[in-house]
C-alpha cells in the first residue's frame, strides 16, 4: 500500500474468536475445568446443597412450613434423652456389625466358589446378582410374607423338617428374632455386591503366585491365607467401606419388614428420622437423627481410605 509515495505495511489481522477459543482449549487447565464443571455443578446441586440444608436443619428447630431458628446442638442433646433414639443407636451398630461381618465372610466364600470352574458359570454368576438387581422394597415384601405370622414359609419348612417346635418363631413380633430377620434380608440383599466385587479381585490375582505357593507345598488354606487374602486386602477394604455406609443408612428393609418394631427394636437412623422428620414434621430433629453418625462415618471413611492408599503405594 502506498500513501504519498511511502509504502506502509497493512495492519496484522486480529485472531478470530474461533482461534481464541481453540487456543484456550489447548491449555490443559482450561480444558480440564470445562470437562469437570458439569459433574461439579451436579455435585453442588444434588449433594452439597441438600447436605448443607440438612446440616442447617439439624442445628435448628425447623418444622415443615414454619420459620426456623438456630438452636445449636440442642437437637443432638435432646435426642440422647429419648429411649427410642438410644435403642436406635444400639440397633444401628448391632445391625451393621452383624450384617457387614456376615456379608464379608459369606461374600469371600461365594467369590471363591464362583472362581472355580463350574458348569453354567456365567448363568450362576448372573443369578447371584438377582437380589442386588430386584428393587429392595419389592423383594422385602416377599420376605415379609416369608416371615409372616400366619403364612411363614420359613416356619412351615422348619416344622416340616422337625427343626422347629410349633408354632415356630414369631419372626417379626419378638425383638431378637425381628433383628435377626432384618439382618438376614440385608445379608441376602448385599451378598452379591460383596461376592462379585471380591470375585473381580480374585480374578486379578496372577495364577503364577498360586503355582509357586503350590510348588512350595502350600495347601489350600495356606494359599488362601498367604496369597489370596493379602492380595484382596485393598478390594475388601473398599467393599467393607461402601457396605458399612450403605448398611448404616439402610431404610427400605426395616421400613417394609418391621416399621422399626417391635418396641423400636429394629429402628435404624433412617427409619427413625423419617418417623420424626416427615411423619411428624419436625425436620430439625429428623435431620439431627440422620446426621448423628456423620462424624463417626467420616472417621471410618478416612481410616479405610488411608489403609487402601497404604496398600496401593
Amino acid at each position: 500500500m502506498a500513501i504519498g509515495g511511502i509504502r506502509v505495511a497493512a495492519p496484522a489481522s486480529r485472531p478470530s474468536l474461533r482461534a481464541k477459543v481453540g487456543e484456550l482449549l489447548d491449555r490443559e487447565q482450561w480444558l480440564g475445568s470445562i470437562f469437570v464443571s458439569p459433574a461439579l455443578v451436579l455435585l453442588l446441586l444434588l449433594v452439597a446443597y441438600p447436605f448443607c440444608m440438612a446440616l442447617y436443619f439439624s442445628v435448628s428447630n425447623a418444622f415443615i412450613g414454619r420459620p426456623s431458628h438456630f438452636i445449636g446442638v440442642r437437637n443432638f442433646i435432646n435426642l440422647w434423652e429419648s429411649d427410642a433414639f438410644r435403642q436406635t443407636f444400639q440397633n444401628a451398630f448391632v445391625f451393621c456389625g452383624a450384617a457387614v461381618g456376615a456379608k464379608l465372610v459369606l461374600g469371600v466364600s461365594l467369590a471363591l466358589l464362583l472362581n472355580q470352574q463350574l458348569w453354567f458359570k456365567r448363568l450362576i454368576r448372573g443369578a447371584v446378582l438377582l437380589p442386588w438387581v430386584i428393587p429392595t422394597a419389592l423383594s422385602t415384601l416377599g420376605w415379609t410374607w416369608m416371615f409372616n405370622s400366619l403364612y411363614s414359609v420359613v416356619n412351615w419348612t422348619g416344622l416340616a423338617l422337625g427343626i422347629m417346635d410349633p408354632p415356630g418363631p414369631n419372626w417379626l413380633g419378638q425383638k431378637y428374632y425381628a433383628m435377626a430377620a432384618v439382618i438376614i434380608v440385608n445379608i441376602w440383599r448385599g451378598l452379591p455386591f460383596f461376592a462379585i466385587t471380591i470375585l473381580a479381585g480374585l480374578v486379578a490375582i496372577p495364577k503364577e503366585l498360586y503355582e509357586a505357593a503350590e510348588a512350595d507345598g502350600a495347601g489350600p488354606f495356606s494359599r488362601f491365607w498367604y496369597v489370596t487374602l493379602p492380595l484382596l486386602k485393598g478390594v475388601l477394604a473398599i467393599v467393607v467401606l461402601f457396605s458399612t455406609i450403605f448398611t448404616f443408612s439402610e431404610f427400605n428393609i426395616v421400613f417394609v419388614l418391621t416399621h422399626g418394631g417391635p418396641i423400636n427394636s429394629t429402628h435404624l437412623f433412617a427409619t427413625l428420622a423419617r418417623q420424626v422428620g416427615l411423619e411428624t414434621g419436625r425436620i430439625g430433629e429428623g435431620a439431627a437423627i440422620s446426621l448423628y453418625l456423620f462424624p463417626v462415618l467420616m472417621l471410618v471413611v478416612w481410616a479405610q481410605l488411608r489403609f487402601v492408599r497404604k496398600q496401593a503405594y
Binding site: 405370622s149 400366619l150 414369631n170 419372626w171 413380633g173 419378638q174 417391635p262
Partner: peptide
C-alpha cells in the same frame, strides 16, 4: 389372642379374619 399380634401390620387383622383364622 396369639403372640403373632406383636408382629402385625395394618393389614394383618384384616387378613386374619378374611382367611378364617
Amino acid at each position: 389372642m396369639e403372640p403373632e399380634v406383636l408382629s402385625w401390620d395394618d393389614a394383618s387383622n384384616n387378613q386374619a379374619i378374611q382367611q378364617g383364622k
